[in-house]
Design a protein around this nucleic acid. Structure first.
Length: 384
DNA sequence: ATGCCTTTGAAGAAC
DNA sequence: GTTCTTCAAAGGCAT
């Protein structure tokens, strides 16, 4: 395994120093998470304009990002190895409650996975798998709050169910009050326990090779019967309570008719940054009273770079677990699947757009609006 | 109604 | 092996 060794024997193996956001260069101080205030917002606002003045082409920027990506990739690879050597204890200090997932054997599409092969379950008892990422303030991780769960399904080990439930939200009925479960899971779930309207359209997984497990009776459902966050209606955006209620208000036949032509879309597992964004978005929104995701994401991108490696490691590790679980749940799923589903629309438009922009400078109006430029005479940087 | 914007990272495609 | 492209989330905004 390639070991990057510039950081003086850092355990995380990445010699990359925290990479400055784009070309903010030396003057950018490390932004500490706790120190995030209006300055970030101000920086963002100014950067939205100033960065357009940079004559660097997007391709160059992209290349730079990919360089960074490689570094992070190395970092991740290193992280991937860590649990093997340290048996899960490696990251106890930075995030003592780190959620390690252990799939219950009966649910594994590819058959049992020995606990030893997945020996990362150093979960604090009662800790929600995504606890470090959850904005829940009242979640009580106390082991004494573990449900005794007399009505547990056969073959389902309680602790496993609970561990998995953070990612694959349990229907509320399955959560005992004693669990003191957060009000709003990371993956919101409908009260009825179903997320998708197309459950009847998929039968025993036969028409969907990726749902090969015999327990996978309904699409959008984890083999456990737990709705999986990665499976969303083909409409794209996740639709939650409202969506489900509307379905169940309709007649069976009506709903069925609507369901049938639709296929579930299994989303990509979230990467480290996405997980970080998911956790921090609300915080940023609250702090800067911003709502626009594009702006928020810029801030989060900066804050991501300002994180220490240990802090980032938490998310890399979590993302790795996400991928691992995703892979186990949908062994035949490929990111390519979603390429195909969206192909012909987005992709072509983007390409068309690129072709257009190669032949003409673009719309000054749109560009100025995008970058907040007021001048009516000059092209902004990217359009030049 | 639909796509864009914006971020990073993962994965696949294309050389 | 390297580079490029797409998609994950999110919600306001433009078309």
């Amino acid at each position: 395994m390639p070991q990057l060794n510039g950081g003086g024997g850092d355990d995380l193996g990445a010699n990359d120093e925290m990479i400055a956001f784009k070309d903010e260069g030396d003057h950018e101080e490390k932004i500490r998470e706790s120190a995030f205030t209006e300055s970030d917002l101000a920086d963002l606002k100014s950067s939205l304009v100033s960065e357009t003045e940079i004559s660097q082409s997007p391709a160059v920027i992209r290349r730079g990002q990919q360089d960074e990506q490689r570094i992070y990739s190395d970092k991740r690879e290193h992280l991937d190895d860590v649990p093997k050597h340290h048996d899960g204890g490696m990251y106890k200090a930075p995030y003592s409650g780190y959620p390690f997932l252990m799939l219950p054997e009966p649910y594994l599409p590819n058959g049992p996975v020995s606990p030893s092969s997945n020996k990362v379950s150093v979960v604090q008892q009662g800790m929600h798998p995504l606890t470090p990422l959850l904005p829940y303030e009242h979640f009580n991780p106390s082991p004494t709050h573990m449900p005794t769960d007399g009505g547990q399904k056969p073959g389902v080990h309680r602790h496993q169910t609970q561990e998995i439930s953070g990612f694959y939200s349990l229907p509320q009925g399955q959560i005992t009050p004693s669990m003191n479960w957060p009000n709003q899971p990371v993956y919101p779930l409908p009260s009825c326990g179903f997320r998708q309207p197309f459950s009847s359209g998929l039968q025993s997984g036969s028409s969907y090779p990726r749902f090969s497990h015999s327990l996978m009776l309904q699409s959008g459902m984890h083999p456990t019967g737990i709705p999986h966050p990665a499976i969303v209606p083909p409409s794209g955006k996740q639709e939650h309570d409202q969506f489900d209620r509307s379905i169940y208000n309709k007649s069976h036949a009506e709903a069925k008719r609507e369901k049938e032509p639709k296929k579930p879309v299994i989303k990509k597992p979230l990467n480290a940054f996405m997980l970080y964004m998911k956790e921090m978005r609300a915080k940023v929104i609250a702090e800067c009273t911003l709502k626009e995701s594009a702006a928020i994401n810029q801030i989060l991108g900066r804050r991501w770079h300002a994180l220490t490696r240990e802090e980032q490691a938490k998310y890399y590790e979590l993302a790795r677990k996400e991928r691992q679980l995703h892979m186990q749940l949908y062994p035949s799923w490929s990111a390519r699947d979603n390429y195909v589903s969206a192909l012909g629309k987005k992709k072509r438009r983007k390409r068309d757009k690129q072709q257009d922009s190669s032949t003409e400078p673009g719309s000054p109006k749109k560009c100025r609006a995008r970058f907040g430029l007021n001048q009516q005479t000059d092209w902004c940087g990217p359009c030049r």
